[in-house]
Amino acid sequence: MDTATPAVTVALHDGESVVAESTQVDARRHGELLLPAVDRVLKEAGLKLDAVTGIVVGVGPGPYTGLRVGLVTAATFASAVGVPVHGLCTLDGLAYASGIEEPFVVATDARRKEVYWARYENRRTRVTDAAVDRPAEIAEQVAGLPVVGAGARLYPEFFPDARDPEHQSAGALAALAAERLAAGADFLDPLPMYLRRPDAQVPKNYKVVTPK
């Protein structure tokens, strides 16, 4: 599952192929959409959660609030069912899904006129750490490269060669994870990749709950 981008995406993978997948794009309702999507995917496969042998979660980078929905859900499932949870960089899922086998870039929307991005040698090989920057600041570094993800669509003046997919797919993320599991490769800890420090401001009346 991955909730680090506007896509709320869940898939079930049996080690060889995607058995079922649900992907909904709605930046405002990650919390409401995720569990019903898990339920739909499992029902489609005729399985219950305890049939799952591992959970893969996109750790971002992504805007905080939505990102946490997937991570806390994955961690809680893992604790309840007693299976491991594996973290993958969200950008790696998009890269894998692109199928591109030459150098390219993945860029997603980081809001505040910035993108989360990384460079790839090919669909399986990331060559830079994920970062958050303004498109203008990285335009020179990525010049001439195809760009996968929603970031390319948002800033066509800096990323003219936009490629699919635009949105994250848990099916692709799970397929990548299945390959890595079979190869005995490492995973990230299932911890959020925020890339930004919290806005440390105490809002006025931070918890006004006056019933009226």
């Binding site: 919390g31 995720l34 569990l35 898990v38 339920d39 959660l49 305890d50 946490r68 929905v69 806390v72 859900t73 961690a75 809680t76 499932f77 604790s79 309840a80 069912v81």
Partner: peptide
């Protein structure tokens, strides 16, 4: 809320 839903569902 996300944790509770996941726990109840699992």
């Amino acid at each position: 809320v996300s944790a509770a839903k996941a726990y109840a569902y699992a």
